[in-house]
């Protein structure tokens, strides 16, 4: 049977892994390649790198970092944050990333999903989506899409956008709850479940993980295929092995890390 994936997210700024709460108050945590290598040895299933300032500074992703990660880490990893066009995608994939993640770019230019899927295969294109609760009745799902770290609404319903991205050729969707991000109070279960039920491609839940039960909840009630964590492992509160043991105890099938 297919196991549920435990994914660690590394937000990178000036070649340092950083982490904030609700995209603010960031602290530097270490070197991305060293941290990635350690998580790999600890048995993480997948890694995600976001170059969190590339977009704002309108510069390409740190490709040397991608290459260095690929030389040391033999599990899939995706890269996002500064993808501007097809050429950026090509460079990142050829440097050794398994997938590229598009977020703001896809909102502004949805055709980039189709173009990327056609050029590199659907499995390479991850839609990253930031969403937050909205009481505005135009959003039937109760969630709207936002960009620029949650600052800018874009008049899109989260579930409709997920369906559209799938039809354009996205191979996977990473759903990040802006309301839950960095709080460590649990994933946004309803948002995750609504999107997972609306599409036929895998869904990664992101934002809000604080303890292993949160992962169990989002994989079961939220119907996610994978759960993304950051703070709970970056600050040393939990180990990859420890989280997997707790997931196993709760009846979630996970990959056994080789010793």
């Amino acid at each position: 049977m297919l196991t549920k994936r435990l994914i660690v997210c590394l937000d990178v700024r000036n070649r340092k892994v950083t982490k904030g709460v609700k995209f603010e108050g960031n602290v530097d945590l270490g070197d991305p390649v060293e941290m990635a290598s350690q998580y790999y040895r600890d048995g993480v299933d997948e890694l995600v790198f976001y170059d969190i300032t590339a977009s704002a500074e309108n510069r390409p992703i740190d490709i040397e970092m991608v290459r260095d990660v690929a030389k040391h880490v033999f599990i899939p990893f995706s890269v996002g944050g500064g993808i501007r066009n097809l050429e950026d995608m090509r460079v990142v994939l050829l440097a050794g990333a398994e997938k590229v993640s598009v977020n703001s770019l896809a909102v502004k230019t949805p055709e980039i999903i189709r173009a990327g899927a056609r050029a590199f295969g659907n499995q390479c294109i991850v839609l990253g989506m930031d969403a937050r609760k909205s009481s505005n009745p135009v959003y039937a799902s109760g969630y709207e899409v936002v960009i620029q770290g949650g600052r800018t609404p874009v008049s899109l319903d989260a579930v409709e956008w997920a369906r559209k991205a799938e039809s354009l050729g996205a191979g996977e969707i990473c759903v990040n709850s802006i309301d839950a991000d960095g709080t460590q109070a649990g994933y946004e279960l309803e948002l995750t479940r609504k999107i997972s039920e609306a599409v036929g491609i895998p869904v990664i839940a992101s934002g809000g993980a604080g303890k292993p039960e949160h992962l169990v909840d989002v994989l079961r009630q939220g119907k996610a295929d994978a759960a993304l964590v950051a703070s709970m492992v970056h600050f040393g509160t939990y180990s990859i092995q420890g989280i997997k043991e707790e997931m196993t105890k709760s009846g979630i099938l996970v990959r056994k890390a080789p010793v």
Binding site: D45, I201, P202, D225, R255
Partner: peptide, 15 residues
């Protein structure tokens, strides 16, 4: 096959 609830691509770690 196209089965409701079966996600395709088959993506992830499997035995």
């Amino acid at each position: 096959p196209t089965i409701p609830g079966l996600k395709v691509p088959h993506m992830g770690w499997n035995q």
